[in-house]
Design a binder for these strands. Structure first.
Lengths: 259, 259
DNA sequence: TCTTGCCATTTGCATATGCAATTAGATAGC
DNA sequence: GCTATCTAATTGCATATGCAAATGGCAAGA
C-alpha cells in the first residue's frame, strides 16, 4: 500500500478498536449493539465509514455471515447504509418522523410551497426565573439560553417558538446568535440527542401570543412541547404554538405499525 | 399417523397451498411478503399456526435457512411469534400505538384509574346527508351507520365520538346496537383493517358539543380524526373531540425512530 | 486529455451442515 | 390416576462455501 493507504489503514484500526462485545446473548446481536452504541454515542458520526465485513470478521473472530447479519439488521433499522463495493457508512438520522415531523420548521414551510422567514424576538441567557423553570421543568441552578422566535410562511405568522437550551450540555449555543439559522435547525447540526419526549394539546391563545400569531385571544391553538436529552443530560425544551385553525398533523399506519 | 394426525396434516396442507411466491426480488423476501400478505388479508387470523420451517422449505423448494430468515424478520416486525418446539403462530396486533393509542377508549380511561361508562346519544343507518358526507368524505350512495357516543370518566365527559361505519364493508354492524360495547371496541373485534390515517388539530367547541362536554362554547378542543380501510375498502371514520384543557398526548422517540 | 474496459473490493444471497435449546406429548413407573 | 422421564419436533445460532452484482479506481488506448 502507498502512504495514503497506510493512513487509511490506521484509521480503520482506530475504528475497529472501538468495537467491543459484551458477551451477552447471540454474537450477531452483540455485534449489532456494539456498532449501534458507537453510532448513538456519536463516536461514529453520520458519514463515517464502518469497517468492511472482512475487517470486523477478523477483529471479532466471528464468521462473515454473522457479521453480515448484524449489519443487515442495522441497515434495516436505518442506522447505516450499505452499498456494494463502496462499503458501509453511518446514516444521517431521518429528518422526518411521520406524525411529529416538526424538527425543521423551514423545511416544513417550504414543503408547503411557501416562503420561509423568521425573527428572534427575544433572547436571554442565565439562570431561569421561577416562572420559566416551572414552565419547562428546569432546575433553578442550571444556566440556559431562553429564546422566543416567530416563524413566518409567506409573511404570515406560522408558529411561535419558545425554547430553552441547556448551556451545560450545548456550550456552543452561548456564542451563537441564531441570526442565520433558527435555533431548532442549529441544534440539529450542533448537538446530539438520544431521546425525546413530546406532548400535544389544545390551548387557548394568551393575549400576547394571539397578537404575535395574528389571531384572536382565546382562539384554539395546538401546543407541541418537546424535550430532548442526550445520554440523560437535558439538551433543549421547546414549546411550539400553532394557530389551530391553520394546522393539522397527519399520519398513516397499519395494524402492526407504521406503513 | 392416527386420524387426528391426518386432520392436522390436511390443515397444514391447506395452509401451505396459500403461500405463493411472486418471483420478484430475493427469495427470503418473497417468502416474507407472501406470509405477511396472508396475515394482513386475514387468511391466517391471529392464533393460526404457521407451517414449520421444514414444511415451507419443502413446499417452496428453498433451504431452511432462507425460510428461517423470512420468518425471523416477520417475528421482528411483530407479525408472528415463534417458540421452539411449539412452532410459529400469527400474533395479535398490538393494542397500543405510542402516540395515538386511542383505539380503545375504555382502556384509556381505566389506565388513568377512572371509572368508565358511555352512552350512545344517537344512531341512524342509511345513506348520508350532504353535510355528513362532506364531514367524513363519504360518497352519497354508500350506506353507513352514523353514531354519536359520549364517553365518561368518573361520570365526567371525557370525549365525544362521532363515527360512521361502512355497512358494505362491515355488514354485521347493522345488527349490533352497541349497548354493551362501544363502537370502537366492537369494531376491533369484528372487523379487519389494513391501513389507517389520522389527523390531529385544535378547534373551538361548537355550542352543542360544548354543552355535552360540559365546557364553554368556543373553548379549545383537540380533534382527532381517524379513517381506516381494509384492502382499499373504507371501514370506518371517526372524529374524537377531547376537551383541550383536560388532555395531553405524549410520546417518546429517539433519533432513528421509536424507542 | 479523455474514454473505454478491466480488475479488485465489498456487499447480497442462497445453500448445506451441525449442534444447542426448548418443550409438547408420549411413555414408563409408581 | 399421577408423576417423573424420555423422545422427538421445532426453532435458534454459527460456520463454511460459493457465486452474483455493483462499482471505484486503475490502466491501456485513442
Amino acid at each position: 500500500m502507498n502512504q495514503a493507504g497506510m493512513t487509511q489503514e490506521a484509521m480503520t484500526q482506530t475504528r475497529l478498536d472501538a468495537v467491543r462485545l459484551d458477551g451477552a446473548g447471540p454474537i450477531y446481536d452483540q455485534i449489532r449493539r456494539a456498532v449501534r452504541d458507537l453510532i448513538l454515542a456519536g463516536t461514529w458520526p453520520p458519514g463515517t465509514s464502518v469497517p468492511p465485513e472482512h475487517a470486523l470478521m477478523e477483529q471479532l473472530g466471528a464468521s462473515r455471515m454473522t457479521v453480515h447479519r448484524a449489519l443487515v439488521q442495522l441497515a434495516r433499522e436505518g442506522l447505516i447504509t450499505r452499498r456494494r463495493r463502496s462499503g458501509t457508512i453511518v446514516a444521517s438520522p431521518p429528518a422526518s418522523h411521520a406524525m411529529l415531523d416538526i424538527l425543521s420548521i423551514p423545511e416544513e414551510v417550504e414543503r408547503l410551497g411557501q416562503r420561509y422567514d423568521y425573527e428572534v424576538l427575544s433572547r436571554e441567557d442565565g439562570r431561569p426565573s421561577a416562572e420559566l423553570a416551572l414552565r419547562f421543568g428546569l432546575k433553578r441552578g442550571e444556566k440556559v439560553a431562553h429564546l422566543v422566535t416567530l416563524h413566518r410562511a409567506d409573511g404570515k405568522a406560522h408558529v411561535l417558538e419558545e425554547r430553552v437550551i441547556h448551556l451545560a450540555t450545548v456550550p456552543a449555543a452561548a456564542a451563537e446568535d441564531f441570526s442565520k439559522t433558527p435555533p431548532g435547525d442549529w441544534l440539529l447540526g450542533n448537538s446530539l440527542w438520544s431521546q425525546a419526549e413530546h406532548a400535544i394539546s389544545a390551548v387557548p391563545a394568551e393575549p400576547d401570543d394571539a397578537q404575535l400569531l395574528d389571531i384572536g385571544a382565546g382562539e384554539p391553538c395546538l401546543l407541541i412541547e418537546r424535550r430532548t436529552w442526550n445520554q440523560g443530560s437535558p439538551v433543549t425544551a421547546v414549546r411550539l404554538l400553532y394557530p389551530g385553525s391553520r394546522h393539522r398533523f397527519v399520519g398513516r399506519f397499519g395494524p402492526y405499525g407504521q406503513v
